[in-house]
Design a protein around this nucleic acid. Structure first.
Lengths: 212, 212, 212, 212
DNA sequence: AATGAATGAGCCTTCATTCAT
DNA sequence: GATGAATGAAGGCTCATTCAT
């Protein structure tokens, strides 16, 4: 009578996790539209109505996915950046390391956050933008801090623009590292520190490059 | 009597342009899947069968769009980068300026190339990747050239990684500039030159940042 | 209260039968191309997606129809032809009777097998050809057997040709009987036995017709 | 200025023939529905509107095709059957020979008449039925004549049924001969004469087969 | 807690057919 | 005599979503 391999009647929290895990994978592989609820339910090992019962709708499910993964990424980066009492370059370094590590160890999650969520309109793009802004905020904080220490005057928009540039290069390197065999998170972080911090270091000494 | 007298019976080349223009707009706004052929035909001011007659299928249409827009962007950037006889930092500067100008003046095109094409699987992602690699190649060439002049030894993978970082920051800044009112292409290019070239400048002096 | 209370939520097997039944009717009346899936679904009393869910595609559905009906016809004829120990003319007679009875009682099925399946290209024609070859094989077997008993030498190709002729006349008579009121299966079978067996009988006596 | 390979400005009759020829081929290969007007126009080497200008509509075109080919087949068979003063078996022989020869030499025509026209509903089936009835009429006439000579009483329905059987076996043998390499029209006609006339001969001698 | 059965709505695609030159 | 340009209409297929158990 018993003995069925498939575990049934699991507690709701466990089932939900399975479903959201499956959804992350499917959305990462196929994209929001191409991923079907059938596919997700099958990968989660449950029937489709159960997905609807627990997660609402496809849109709600994707939103749930984005929120959960964004939270995980933010927590990882925040832990890497650490708190006060540490010089900003050290904190940037460990933040980048945490970021590249997350992107490498949770590739589906990273694909969903960096591509799918930003490409499929509202409300997903907004959700992803909110997360990205938090990360840009971290970086902007560090840049502002460093500028303060170096007693260099940087406008808010300048800081914002530099943070956008740094975050963009991190995103690009993360994708490249994930697609290129043999590139570790540490190497990616080192490249970016060399590229960015050294450049920022010059900025701090008011050595600016200018056209002509 | 005159006015918008809905021009009919246009030559094929004109109609095709109208359709591809409409497709660029629709794919940029809605993405590949969400954009409907009805929508595109209506925006182009023709019936759906004509779109199929001239452009084949939705997939072929999207491919055509990507190729056309990628070609335009590449030509713009290549013209900006220019030829030999000019120092690499000058060439990077004018290349970036051309790039940010293109991204600002053809926002739909840029959205299609930077987001939609990369997010909707093969064969589109491959098409977009090919274009991006050309741009990365431009940048890598400039970095390699600069390293040569400064007599600094940089491994191929280092150059590639730095180019990926620089291109990523350009992409990020382009998106930010397009979403943020009052940021011009020139400002974006200046920010990036400060961020990147100054950093690269230090690298050329072998002043590397290292962990701990 | 009772009456045609549109039965809903039927088990899959029942629904599938209803659909295939409806498909037989539609394909017989309109042909493969002209029959629409909407039409079939409506006649089956279900929605179109259910047809696709259970039967796959129009092509698969038509193949399913052909296979099911061919199987039924073959079983009927095989039962009629019977086994050894009975003289070949008796077996031909009861086989023909079974055939004309089937064609009269399942006219849609017969139309699908004899016309639609053979007229709409591969893979349907092949499926129908396979069935027809089995029937031709039955007949060829009987003819060969009779030739053996009569100690007449008939080449394999002669037997095949005679079987083709006999099967063709049966097909023709079946169509004519179905279109002509008052012609029973028994009469059709008698006509054919008179036409064919008597002629074959002469052949057994080596009385061949020859020109001039 | 001149010199274009494609002959243009042909007289209407020639153009029409080209189109109907092309239509015969297309309808034979693809069937009525699957054959497209584009395909036919292209094979005829003209533009689509010209087909409509000359032949009306797809339905009219198919009807034209059936009528033209049916006429050709009937003329061939009628010429074969010949007139009075010749014994009925000789006339059947030469009629069958003419028929098998036509079917072998105009295979597309034969496919259209025997399959496509009969399978695609009204008004085509009626057109094809009319032609077939004429052929059945020829055969019925010969059978009736032979019965008269032999002073055997055959009911009208019996004659009709026998004619249907004979025509069906001819159709079947024609298809088989066309698909089987090495079977000539003469061989097919001989097989059928042996199969049919010998049997009918017995009938003439009032030797009937009966069950049990 | 969980699912088999079922559908409304929409999209891609094709084709016969016509218009204006 | 002949055609490039253009479309209304319809059909195959899929998918998110719900009902009844």
């Amino acid at each position: 009578m018993a003995g069925e391999a498939k575990a049934r009647r699991l507690p709701r929290a466990v089932r939900e996790r399975q479903m959201v895990d499956a959804a992350v994978r499917c959305f990462a592989r196929s994209g929001y539209q191409a991923a079907s609820m059938d596919e997700i339910a099958e990968l989660a090992g449950v029937s489709k109505p159960l997905v609807y019962l627990y997660l609402g709708s496809k849109e709600e499910l994707f939103t749930t996915v984005i929120r959960r993964e964004a939270g995980a990424l933010l927590r990882a980066v925040a832990a890497g950046v650490g708190g006060d009492g540490v010089p900003p370059d050290e904190r940037l370094w460990s933040g980048l390391l945490a970021f590249f590590t997350y992107a490498a160890e949770h590739q589906d999650s990273w694909v969903v956050l960096s591509r799918q969520a930003r490409t499929h309109g509202e409300p997903f793009a907004g959700e992803a933008a909110r997360m990205r802004e938090e990360i840009v905020g971290f970086v902007a904080g560090l840049i502002g801090e460093a500028a303060g220490e170096a007693e260099v005057a940087l406008g808010g928009r300048d800081v914002e623009a530099l943070a956008q540039a740094l975050v963009g290069s991190a995103e690009s390197l993360a994708g490249w590292a994930n697609e290129t065999s043999g590139v570790t998170a540490k190497e990616a972080a080192e490249t970016l520190m060399n590229f960015a911090w050294a450049g920022l270091g010059n900025l701090m000494k008011s050595e600016r490059w200018s056209p002509r």
